[in-house]
């Protein structure tokens, strides 16, 4: 019998949680000293690297009119609103040098309130220590173009705190969708001949050779048939690699949702790699927490539609 490694990085995850909880606990204690705390939660907004502490409390009367001070560092934003009742509390929060303060004058006795406070949380190692992320790097040749994604908590216990549950919101997930073979397949031979002829023509400086190459280029253009200028076509083709262009060819489902995409950044995207990507990197997002220990997602690459679009741009397909 041998022991299997039980998820490493527990200390780092717990240390990160402690840091988060330290501030949340101070806010909790400051509110608890004056009012009755009903509930609280801590959310880490992963892409923005922001921690948000929300605390719901009831003003049980007697202490309205005081100021509550939170000298625990300046927040990105702090917001107080009534859950029940219509008090306008937009002026009740002010930031001070070392934190913020709540002026309770506008608060009505027996109302319930929600305080949301956001702070910077720049420790990416915390999320890595807490979450295992894995995705399909590619699929077998004849498989459907469905890339799997999987996120799982390594140390769920680290999310259970004395001051409320801690949730991870919008965990970014990148999947490289291979497109190079599809582009290559959609390029007809005549187009490649014309590309080569156009390149030679542009590069040539000798007027006599330029004339000869010009004739070759025209012949190559005729070989491709009617259509737009090759440089314009390449420009149009580039548009399908823009986030707005490529988004229509991907569909993200199950526990994940689509967020963004960009040209792949991989070592095999050799120079000049930003020009023509071999992959498109698709960013999807998911949430993890004590009510979702693991998330599964599927990214469907609509290969057929992508090929049809490329062929339409190149004038191979009319509709």
């Amino acid at each position: 019998m041998s022991e299997i490694i039980a998820g490493a990085g527990a200390e780092l995850a717990e240390k990160g949680t402690e840091e988060i909880v330290k501030r949340a606990s101070r806010i909790y204690e400051a509110v608890k000293g004056k009012y009755r705390v009903l509930s609280q939660e801590i959310v880490i907004h992963c892409p923005e690297q922001v921690q948000q502490f929300s605390i719901a409390f009831e003003a049980t009367g007697g202490l309205i009119g005081h100021k509550i001070k939170f000298p625990f560092g300046k927040p990105i934003r702090a917001r107080l609103r009534p859950i029940v009742g219509g008090a306008d509390l937009s002026e009740s929060i002010s930031t001070v040098e070392n934190g913020f303060e709540i002026n309770c004058q506008g608060m009505q006795s027996d109302d319930t309130f929600l305080l949301d406070v956001e702070y910077d949380f720049r420790d990416p190692r915390f999320v890595d220590a807490l979450v295992h992320r894995e995705r399909a790097k590619e699929l077998p040749k004849d498989a459907e173009t469905e890339y799997w994604m999987h996120a799982a908590l390594k140390h769920p216990k680290a999310l259970q705190t004395k001051y409320g549950r801690l949730d991870l919101r919008d965990l970014d997930f990148t999947v490289d969708v291979g497109v190079s073979e599809d582009i290559k397949t959609s390029i007809p031979g005549a187009f490649r001949v014309e590309l080569d002829a156009a390149f030679k023509l542009l590069k040539e400086r000798d007027p006599h050779r330029k004339t000869v190459l010009g004739i070759q280029h025209i012949r190559a253009m005729r070989g491709r048939g009617k259509g737009r200028n090759i440089v314009e076509l390449l420009g149009d083709l580039q548009e399908i690699f823009l986030p707005t262009g490529f988004a229509e060819f991907v569909d993200v489902s199950k526990d994940f949702h689509y967020s963004n995409c960009f040209r792949g950044i991989s070592y095999y995207e050799t120079i000049p790699f930003p020009t023509w990507p071999k992959n498109m990197t698709v960013v999807s997002r998911t949430d993890l927490g004590l009510d979702r220990y693991a998330a599964e997602g599927v990214l469907v690459y609509k290969k057929k539609s992508f090929l049809e679009k490329a062929e339409r741009i190149l004038g191979i397909r009319s509709s």
Binding site: D196, R263, P272, T275, W276
Partner: peptide, 27 residues
């Protein structure tokens, strides 16, 4: 990466890079 490419791109590069892109992908 994107702006550096756009700043230095010329038509020649555009055409040639596409040819090279196709050449770098084996069947």
């Amino acid at each position: 990466l994107a702006t550096s490419y756009l700043r230095n791109m010329q038509i020649l590069t555009e055409i040639n890079s596409f040819t090279e892109y196709l050449n770098s992908i084996g069947e």
